[in-house]
Design a protein around this nucleic acid. Structure first.
Lengths: 197, 197
DNA sequence: TGTAATATTGAATAGTTGTTCAAGAAAGAA
DNA sequence: TTCTTTCTTGAACAACTATTCAATATTACA
């Protein structure tokens, strides 16, 4: 019946991700996306509607993957508190190795667009809620494993961890020394393990 | 000898601050700044060199003021730990009252520009260091006042507080419920007061 | 008052932007 | 092969951008 598309949609989104992540939404031009994806403007518009449509698919994919990673931690072997620590330490490691200069695509998008774009704002709010839930489970597991006091509220601690995750992602953009970043993770773990409510 | 300027430089910077804060650097056009300040392009360029020059003065002023505020807390009456708490609670209050949608101008600028603009990145790094120092003093005061255990490292705790400050500023942009935000502040205070190192 | 020095104006410039669309290319069905 | 449907191309478009500059206005001093 008809000609089929020559490109792999997911690959195009992945290539666009790299550009949006590097330059932000506003500073990424269609020309940049044409170069990165190899698709001409017409094809991009046929496939994604417009620039924002492509961006929405980009952050959807990015968020889906990170949430899957955090949710996947539950099934991995090991103590839950170590999994949370590992997640934070990896951000620190990436920053120390200069792999975190672009920051977090989601946080970048949240700060750049959410004030004036309700569609993006809603998406990011929902993402935030999902991520928080994933942390609630990890905290509850850690309580069951005896690493977090059972009298403490899992929801509160999940928000606390999430807040420090966002903080680290901001912090990393200003390339602080490794000691400060490690100190932050220590502070979070200390806060999780302490007894007081 | 010569004609004097008709505008108040600081007032112009203040008016420009509102626009940059609302729209971000990239989305703020010279036309927006002309409307907001009442100065024509030529005057703006004569006074600040270019768009970035004006923006640099805007974030300088903003950062100077916030640092002065935190440093000023030392001389205010009351327990230091309550001052730290008050700072965080006010962010929560602002967010709950819908006054925090624009987020923090500095964090916004950091995420939008620091990756590709070294001048801005350096400025924000320096600002970060100054703010951290201010928190070190507050923590040390709180230790002297008996609210934070003296065995704990003030530098570490200062980084921890700062990280949560950045986290809150990101968090507020996605308009979370008040309970989550309060829980975060509780988590931070709990982390500060706990004994373990 | 006349003059030198600086401020203000706002139209003009050169470049970039997101988006469209008509023309050409590919592929399965008849 | 021919037809129909879809994909691809890339030049063209109108709107916007940051910046400049010559003309005009205002002041302080001589």
């Amino acid at each position: 019946m008809a000609r089929h598309a020559e490109y792999d949609r997911d690959a195009v989104i992945a290539e666009a991700t790299a550009v949006f992540w590097d330059r932000g939404y506003g500073k990424t031009s269609i020309g940049d996306l044409v170069s990165a994806t190899g698709l001409q403007p017409g094809s991009l518009y046929a496939a994604f509607g417009n620039k924002k449509g492509l961006f929405v698919e980009v952050i959807d994919r990015y968020n889906r993957r990170f949430i899957a990673r955090v949710n996947g931690l539950r099934d991995a072997p090991g103590r839950s508190i170590h999994k949370v620590e590992g997640l934070l330490r990896q951000i620190v490691d990436d920053a120390a190795a200069g792999r975190a200069e672009r920051g977090c695509l989601t946080v970048n998008a949240l700060l750049e667009l959410s004030t004036h774009d309700d569609e993006i704002a809603d998406k990011l709010r929902a993402y935030n809620a999902q991520l928080r839930k994933a942390f609630v489970w990890l905290v509850k597991d850690a309580q069951a494993e005896g690493d977090i006091h059972t009298a403490r509220d899992a929801n509160q601690l999940a928000s606390f961890v999430l807040n420090n995750l966002w903080g680290l992602r901001v912090m990393c953009k200003s390339r602080p020394d490794r000691a400060s970043l490690d100190a932050i993770v220590d502070g979070v773990l200390n806060g999780l393990r302490s007894r007081v409510a």
